[in-house]
Amino acid sequence: MSTLLTRYPAYLQKGAEFADIQQALEPEVLALWQARDGMMEQLNVDSATWGLKYWEQALGIPVELAKPAAFRRSRVKSKLRGAGVTTVAMIQSVAESFSNGDVEVTELPERYRVEIEFVGSIGTPPNMEDLTAALGEIMPAHLGWDYVIIYKTWDGVKKNTWNELSAYTWQQVKESDLNG
């Protein structure tokens, strides 16, 4: 029995001609439903795939199909968040959209600068190049900014025993938050 046919009352389902028509229409209707669902996914930046290029074009962002979708999404989100007057909260929101972690922003008005500290992760966050470009678009021309990136120091590593660290590579030790 057809999926479409089950949507109709039982007295209509019993008619052979009606059932044949519904079976003939079913592949086309299902294709339309799938197309509709696919289109709806493109209207949300988090689920967009082929529709990312339209988001980028609408926001004046260069379309770079070779870049991963996650990076392209973060640029779109940053541009959307960066509309309006630049505030500390806006800078924080834009930086967090690229860093995948918490960010603290400190104003340094006497130096005409802003400090952006990546407190939610250890090591250099991904996609720093695009973050810098996004900040260049939203920051007033008279303000500069500095990044503060947290790394594991030797003092922090020394707090662990060799047995505790033997399961990790040196790169993992430097970028982890192992009890220190």
Rank of each mutant, 00 (worst) to 15 (best):
1 M>I: 08
1 M>E: 07
1 M>L: 08
2 S>P: 07
2 S>C: 00
6 T>R: 09
8 Y>T: 10
9 P>I: 02
11 Y>L: 12
12 L>G: 08
13 Q>A: 03
13 Q>L: 01
13 Q>D: 10
13 Q>Y: 01
13 Q>K: 08
13 Q>H: 02
14 K>C: 04
15 G>L: 04
18 F>I: 04
19 A>W: 01
20 D>C: 01
20 D>H: 07
21 I>G: 06
21 I>A: 07
22 Q>D: 01
25 L>Y: 04
26 E>Q: 02
26 E>L: 04
28 E>N: 01
29 V>C: 14
29 V>I: 15
29 V>Y: 13
31 A>Q: 08
31 A>S: 13
32 L>V: 12
33 W>T: 14
33 W>G: 14
35 A>Q: 10
35 A>V: 08
38 G>Y: 09
38 G>F: 00
38 G>I: 04
39 M>Y: 11
41 E>M: 13
41 E>Y: 05
42 Q>H: 11
42 Q>S: 03
43 L>Q: 03
43 L>C: 00
45 V>R: 03
45 V>E: 05
50 W>C: 12
50 W>M: 12
50 W>L: 14
50 W>Q: 14
51 G>Q: 08
52 L>S: 01
54 Y>L: 15
57 Q>F: 07
58 A>F: 11
58 A>N: 13
61 I>A: 09
64 E>P: 10
64 E>Y: 03
67 K>Y: 15
68 P>E: 14
69 A>M: 09
70 A>S: 15
70 A>H: 12
71 F>N: 14
73 R>V: 08
75 R>V: 13
76 V>I: 15
79 K>M: 06
79 K>E: 14
79 K>C: 09
79 K>N: 02
80 L>H: 01
82 G>D: 06
83 A>E: 12
83 A>W: 00
84 G>A: 06
85 V>A: 15
86 T>W: 03
88 V>P: 02
89 A>H: 06
89 A>P: 02
90 M>A: 06
91 I>K: 03
94 V>F: 04
94 V>H: 01
95 A>F: 02
97 S>F: 05
98 F>G: 02
100 N>D: 14
100 N>H: 07
101 G>M: 10
102 D>Q: 15
103 V>N: 06
104 E>G: 04
108 L>M: 14
109 P>L: 03
109 P>T: 04
111 R>I: 14
113 R>W: 05
116 I>W: 00
116 I>H: 10
117 E>Y: 00
118 F>Q: 02
119 V>A: 07
121 S>F: 03
121 S>V: 01
126 P>L: 03
128 M>I: 11
130 D>T: 14
131 L>E: 03
134 A>V: 01
134 A>M: 02
135 L>K: 05
137 E>Q: 15
137 E>A: 14
141 A>P: 12
143 L>K: 08
144 G>V: 08
146 D>G: 07
146 D>I: 05
147 Y>G: 11
149 I>C: 06
151 Y>K: 07
151 Y>M: 09
152 K>Y: 05
153 T>N: 01
154 W>E: 07
154 W>M: 07
155 D>P: 02
156 G>R: 04
156 G>D: 09
160 N>G: 12
160 N>T: 14
161 T>P: 02
162 W>A: 05
163 N>V: 11
164 E>W: 09
164 E>R: 05
166 S>R: 05
167 A>C: 12
170 W>M: 07
170 W>D: 01
171 Q>E: 15
173 V>I: 15
173 V>Y: 02
173 V>D: 03
174 K>G: 09
175 E>S: 10
175 E>C: 12
176 S>L: 10
176 S>K: 00
